[in-house]
Design a protein around this nucleic acid. Structure first.
Lengths: 149, 149
DNA sequence: CATAGTGTTACTATTATGGTAACACATTCG
DNA sequence: CGAATGTGTTACCATAATAGTAACACTATG
């Protein structure tokens, strides 16, 4: 099983908001770039806003803006906002047999091992910001002002 | 979504095999320690054998043994054997809009970012072996010879 | 030949994901 | 004030993955 596409789409959204330079973008507009339904975008925006990464303005002329500078939003922030905040690895679904010494102790050991692996992953995500992504997108191709609205 | 419990159970299995010290253990026995159905164990053993981590002996008196010394089986080997060998992160399900510069370039950027994160996770797993797990299980509690058979 | 054990498929229940529809609520503008 | 615009959230649905159980062909031993 893989980490869902929510992370990828959320990074996409935040990068779009950075190209908007403070001007509110609608979920309709962002859905066009992401090639999905606006309700999907809204669901994610709800999580991003809850995590303090975006701010929405309701009503006519509304939309969403970044709540923080792009250079202050790490990909770890995004991951934590849209994916589970808990363990990445599932351990045994049924409690292993405590009568067996391996069964009795294996989960504690696994928790440490998998926790370290997850921490390494998050640490790597922490080293990249939405501003970095923006710069890389620009380097991949010329970032014109935006898609025609 | 999380990484399935297959990884945890596979590590459990390999650790058990290490306590067997070369003597074949049956899936029935291991299922007892893991507290699951033997068919689940067999499914995982099939993957582990395919990855060259275990060797099975069929027929009466059969069972499974480690195909390599525990100190030469890393948790990354296990992860690769039982979970997907491909990307850990899913990207967009539909191709983003190529008319938008962000849409056009975001996936390449995301591939690099998520690939680096996954590599960090695997690198961490690579630093731990089944022998290490065995030692930690022993440190958590006294490893008696084994569960009564 | 009977027994023990592997390897694999099929079935099932459950859960998570992601797309779409619907609509209450909030805000702006004429 | 009403219409229009846009958010936030829930519900529904189809699909995919997981993990437990059942079943059974195949393999090897005594």
């Amino acid at each position: 099983m893989t980490i869902s596409s929510r992370f990828a789409v959320a990074v996409h959204i935040l990068t779009l908001l950075e190209t908007g330079r403070g001007e509110p973008l609608t979920s309709e507009y962002m859905a066009g770039s992401v090639n999905t339904n606006p309700a999907v975008i809204r669901r994610l925006l709800s999580l991003l806003a809850r995590a303090g990464l975006t701010r929405a303005r309701m009503g006519a002329g509304g939309g969403t803006v970044l709540a923080r500078p792009a250079a202050e939003i790490t990909l770890r922030d995004v991951y934590r906002a849209v994916e589970c905040e808990g363990p990445l690895f599932s351990l045994h679904h049924e409690r292993p047999n405590p009568k067996c010494p391996v069964g009795r102790n294996i989960q504690a050991v696994l928790e440490r091992a998998t926790g370290a692996a997850q921490a390494a992953l998050e640490e790597q995500l922490r080293g990249r910001t939405v501003a970095d992504v923006m710069a890389e997108v620009a380097a991949e191709g010329r970032v014109a002002p935006a898609m025609p609205r």
